[in-house]
Structures are given as C-alpha cells and as structure tokens.
C-alpha cells in the first residue's frame, strides 16, 4: 500500500504507531525520503491528520494511516478536511473494538467510516479492498478521487488484510498530477486566498453545506464500485465486503460445487453504497444473507436498499473472530436449505 501511495504521487506521510498497520509507516520512513517526500512520525494521530491538512492545503498529495482507536482521534481533522474541501487519503486497518479491543481483523468501524465519522454533515469516500492486490489498486484510485472531488477518501481495510502477505503487481508511477488552482502557496502573482470551514453567516453556511451535498450526490452518481460473483442464477445472495467477502467467496465456491445456487455481491465503495444495484438484484432473487465481521452494520444499508423487497438474514462475528470458509459455508448452506423447506410448504 505504501509503495502504491508513493507511486500514486503521494509525497507526504504523517502517522503515529498503532498495530496492525505499522508496516506502512516503517516502509514510508525509509522510502518516502528516497522519493523526495517527507515522512514524519507525529506526536499523535491528531497531529498527523493536521499535518496532512497542512500539506494538502499547499496542493500536495498527502496521507496518513492508522487503526480504529487512532482513526477515532483523526476524525476531528477529517471533518475539517471535508469542511475545507481538501483532498487526503486515510488508511484504516480496522481492529477489534470498542475501546482498545484487540489487533485481530474486524469490521466494526463501518458505521464510523460510512456516516462521515466526525462532526457535521459530510461524507468521506470509503473504499474496501478484498485483497492485498486490491489494496494496492485502490490506493491509486483513492488519491485520484480525493483530488477530483477535493474530499477525504478512506481506505477501509482490516487486520486480516493488514497482516497478509500476497504477491502484487504494482502500478507504474503517476507522471502528471492534477493542477490545483485552489492551493495556498503564497500569493505570488494573484490575490491572496484563504481556506476555512468557519462560516458564521448562517445563509452562507447553508449554501456551503448544499454545495458539499451536491458534490456528494455527484459522487453517488459516478463512483459506485462493486463485484458480482456467480449471481446470474443465484437463489441466495451473500453480501459481504473486505476480508469477510474473501471468506464468503471461498464459501460460495464450496457450495456451488455441492450444487447450491448461491452467489456473492461485494460492495467495493461502502460510501457511496451500491443501494440501487442491490435493489435490482431483488428482482431476480428474494433472499439475501449479509455476512460481516461485526454485529450488523452494513446490514442496515442492505436493508435500506431492499426496503422490504427481499428477505434479509444476517451472520456476523464481532471482536476479531474470523470464521473459515467452511464455517461460513455451513451458515449459508443451512439458510439455503431452510429456504427450500419453506418453499416446499
């Protein structure tokens, strides 16, 4: 991920140690200076997100990374980035929680990530990689989207992906970065500029908020990403993201061999969420099983998307427990057979 970020033109990394993502900072500390960039181990997660803000306001590509408790601390700054319309990339390698929790893979930060996370009426674009390769690929996408929409982008991975080793194909380094005619680099040959989120006039504050909302609608219209796996004839759709989707995919494969018509739908953007696509799937299939490594968070988005047009079941394991594909296959299978029994009645 770190190498992908450097290749995506990121030249500023600011972070604070927290497991399970320290490899990112360690890699950056060695390779960012080689690329002519800056690495700083900040005094806190809070300071690191504001260093990102400072670099971003000058027009540079900047990022930070952390894990759940650290991301909570960064939320203040993420809100400021969103309010000031500044691009930034934030990697959250989620761990078990709440509180200090543990360092195992978990997906308990779905709500925090997809609902804005900090204070105020805003959204961050949330990308959920299902493999190390996709983490690499989405890193480039994250920087592009952040610049395109002048908005923070979060990559929501978890301890499982964070601690996995897989061969990856790295992208070619980005050669041309976008011009930023809004950046603050000293008022040379132009009037002075400012970047702010404080707008005391209520009408102007409302206008600014509507402007942000229009941008969010545009993102919803253009940037939804998902993967569909064996859905054509599926009688039961499993919905899962990130590493849970990877486990679910294994389970689906296994069940297909046994002749069960099950498929997988994997949202890649968690915000914007593929509501419309899931609603469309309900035209073909009347049963959905949401599987998450938490007690039911994306579940709410799936239910909203379906609005009662299909049955939704849930299987979740909070706290960092990661079931095997065999465990998940059992759950999916039993749900599948129950359906057949019900139909038979």
């Amino acid at each position: 991920m770190a190498e992908a970020a450097i290749r995506a033109g990121c030249r500023f990394y600011f972070g604070y140690p927290i497991t399970p993502q320290n490899e990112v900072a360690e890699y950056m500390s060695e390779h960012m200076p080689e690329a002519g960039g800056t690495f700083i181990q900040a005094e806190s997660e809070i300071a690191s997100i504001y260093m990102v803000l400072g670099a971003s306001v000058t027009g540079a590509r900047a990022m930070t990374s952390s894990s759940s408790p650290g991301i909570s601390l960064k939320q203040e700054g993420i809100s400021f980035l969103a309010g000031q319309e500044l691009p930034a990339v934030i990697l959250n390698v989620m761990r078990g929680g709440p509180g200090l929790g543990n360092i195992a893979g978990c997906q308990g930060d779905y709500f925090q990530a997809t609902r804005g996370g900090g204070h105020g009426d805003y959204k961050t674009i949330v990308l959920a990689p299902g493999s190390v390769q996709e983490l690499v690929d989405l890193t480039g996408v994250a920087f592009e989207l952040a610049d395109k929409y002048r908005n923070p982008v979060m990559i929501l991975a978890d301890g499982l992906i964070g601690q996995m080793r897989e061969p990856v194909v790295l992208p070619e380094p980005v050669k041309h970065l976008p011009e930023k005619d809004w950046a603050l680099r000293g008022a040379k040959g132009r009037p002075s500029r400012f970047s702010r989120s404080l707008i005391l006039n209520v009408r102007r504050m409302e206008e600014h908020n509507w402007k942000l909302q229009r941008k969010f609608r545009e993102i919803e219209a253009n940037e939804i990403r998902f993967e569909q796996y064996l859905l054509e004839d599926a009688k039961l759709v499993v919905v899962a993201f990130g590493s849970a989707a990877r486990v679910a995919k294994g389970a689906v494969k296994r069940l297909r061999k046994e002749g069960l018509k099950v498929g997988l739908f994997r949202p890649i953007t968690l915000w914007p969420f593929p509501h419309k696509k899931i609603r469309e799937l309900a035209n073909e299939c009347s049963e959905f099983l949401v599987y998450e490594l938490n007690a039911g968070q994306m579940l709410e988005d799936v239910k909203l998307a379906l609005s009662g047009s299909a049955e939704v079941f849930f299987y979740g394991r909070p706290g960092g427990v990661i079931p095997t594909p065999m465990d998940v296959a059992k759950i999916i299978g039993s749900r599948y057979y129950q359906r057949i029994k019900r139909k038979a009645k």
Binding site: A47, Y50, M51, G54, A55, G59, S192, F194, R196, L198
Partner: peptide, 28 residues
C-alpha cells in the same frame, strides 16, 4: 484573520496550528 490580512491564510482547529504549519512548511 483572513478578513484583515491580505495574505494566504488557512484556518486551523483549536490547538492544531503547529501541526498544520508543519505540513505546510515541509511541503513548501
């Protein structure tokens, strides 16, 4: 301050000025 000072100005959250300033100075 940007209402009065005719220079480039970025607002900071309470207490975070030195971190924002760090990001700016390291960048340019």
């Amino acid at each position: 301050a940007y209402d009065y000072m005719d220079i480039d100005i970025v607002e900071s959250a309470h207490g975070r000025g030195p971190a924002v300033a760090t990001g700016i100075k390291r960048s340019v």
